[in-house]
């Protein structure tokens, strides 16, 4: 099985740190989402420690949001005609044997998720800092109330997005997960899922 490098070690490290910080944030934050999840705070040694880890994992999360943005923006932030067609057929996910237009390094769905991660990350950071130290920043109460709403809405949207992202990156598309684990993917996989990128890589060699 011929392999091709999809993500270099730096790209994978950034993605992994970002993902781990997200999981820590989810586990430390969910305990404060509702009283029924409060027991989850025990994982990190109680609610006070959970909040401590939540604040600092949040800082890591925001930094890695920007690192991800800068490492992939050239490939992930431009949409072409094939991407429009990709949306029209929903990436071929709504049926079997649907003809899907060729994608570059990232397909149109991944590009949308890329945008979502960036905007959600920035808004998470802004609302998070306001929630963390409203008394130091002297934020008006009405704004603080709104940040709680926003922080929760971003959370809900992002959890929905991440669940989908994990599903599509694992069992929904066999052969994909190795791009994160080893950085190498099967050439056949590359040609099937990211034809334009695959051809460009081959031409470059």
């Amino acid at each position: 099985m011929a392999m091709i490098e999809r993500h270099n070690p730096k790209e994978r490290a950034v993605h992994s740190i970002h993902a781990i910080s997200f999981i820590i944030l989810l586990l430390t934050g969910i305990g404060l989402y509702s009283k029924s999840f409060f027991g989850i705070t025990k994982i990190f040694g109680g609610v006070d420690w959970s909040r401590f880890f939540h604040h600092w994992a949040g800082v890591v999360f925001i930094i890695t949001v920007f690192l991800i943005y800068f490492q992939w923006k050239d490939e992930a932030s431009v949409f072409d005609e094939d991407d429009k067609e990709w949306f029209r057929v929903f990436g071929g996910y709504l049926g079997k044997g649907v003809k899907v237009p060729p994608s570059g390094k990232f397909n149109a769905g991944q590009k949308v998720f890329f945008k979502m991660i960036f905007y959600a990350g920035v808004l998470f950071g802004i609302t998070g800092i306001i929630m963390w130290i409203p008394q130091i920043l002297s934020i008006p109460k009405f704004i603080v109330q709104l940040t709680y709403i926003l922080h929760d809405m971003i959370l809900i949207g992002l959890v929905m997005g991440v669940l989908t992202h994990v599903y599509l990156g694992t069992i929904a598309n066999p052969g994909t997960i190795s791009s994160l684990l080893t950085g190498q993917v099967d050439e056949q996989w590359a040609r099937h899922h990211h034809e334009k990128w695959y051809k460009a890589m081959k031409k470059g060699k």
């Binding site: 079997k96 899907v100 929905m160 929904a172 052969g175 040609r191």
Partner: peptide, 27 residues
């Protein structure tokens, strides 16, 4: 929202299933 996402994923997996690339040419 989260419940609907999980339900959609399970339904997708059961009804449409994974996108297999092996043995196929092009997309």
């Amino acid at each position: 929202g989260v419940g609907a996402t999980v339900a959609a994923i399970i339904l997708h997996y059961l009804i449409i299933g994974p996108k297999r690339y092996k043995g196929k040419e092009g997309g």
